[in-house]
Every structure is written in C-alpha cells, then in structure tokens.
Amino acid sequence: MNTAQHESGSPSMPATASRVAVQELVERLAAQVDSAQREIGETRAILKDAVERLMPAFTALRSSETTSAVPRVAATELARTKRAIRASGPAFSALQFQDISDQLLAHAQVRLVSLLAEVHNVAVALTADSSGQVKFADLMQKVTNANNNLAALDISLVKPVGKAHLGTGDMEFF
C-alpha cells in the first residue's frame, strides 16, 4: 500500500498539502457563492422596494380619474383615460422589466443555494477523519451526488423568462 492509500484499503488523497489546498479552494468557493446569493437577495429587495414605491402613484392616478368632482361627458372621460394610459405606457414597460428581472434573479438565487449545498457536502468529504485521512471513495460519492443534483436542478427549475430583448411584445390570435 502506498501513501495514497489508507488503512481501509481505498485510495486516499495523496498528500495533506494537496488536500488542504483543495479544501481551502472549496471553502473560498462556498464563501463567494454565499456572498453572491446574498447580494442578489439585496438587489431583489431594492428593486421590490422601488416598485412598491411606484405602484401607489398608479393607484393615485386611478383614484384621481374616478373621483373628480367635475362631471364629464363619457367621450371626454374616455379620451382622458386613453391619454393617461398612453402617457404611462413606458412606465408600465419599465415596471414589467423589473418583474422579469426579479424572476431571473430568483432563479439565480435558487441555483446558488443549490451550488452552495453541494460545495458544502464536498468540503465535508474533504475533511480528514480521526486518522488524518480523507477517504477518496467517500469524496467521489459526494462529487457524483453533486453532479446528479446539479443536473436535476436544470430540469426542475421552470424557465422563468423567455425574453431576450427590451421591446414590447408581439400579439397573435390563434
């Protein structure tokens, strides 16, 4: 049995220095993924806050249209509503892009959380046991599990957004 194997008979990590380096890399990856996940969460919160501040403006606009003390003839009222809708068109588009962006960010967060969990599992498998050895078979099992879980993640996540440009959308009747 050479130094790459330990008492269980399965191959182990060849050298402590290599194992420590890999473990350090895994921990750094985990820290970066965790930070990215939190930053995306903060970005979503900021965007949500911005939209929540904007939406009352629409509500107020709607109220001012319906509670005016001055009676208007129906045609004038309709024209006024049309003008208001037309004027607020770009704002509607911008708000919808916030929603679209939020869906993409939410999926990115799910991916990062899953990635973090798998990185953590691999980090645990890299930790030496009481004999100071890392079981290579255990490590490879964790790597296999991580591969399977991350592949399944792509299948399980519903595609949030199918939009690649910023123009308003087309319409068609079947």
């Binding site: 037309r86 068109g89 919808q96 939009k163």
Partner: peptide, 11 residues
C-alpha cells in the same frame, strides 16, 4: 385564443 408577449403595451 391568442398569445401576447410581455412586456405588454397597455394600448
């Protein structure tokens, strides 16, 4: 009946 792509134009 039909398909409209977001973001929608209110008009």
């Amino acid at each position: 009946t039909g398909w409209m792509v977001k973001p929608f134009d209110p008009e």
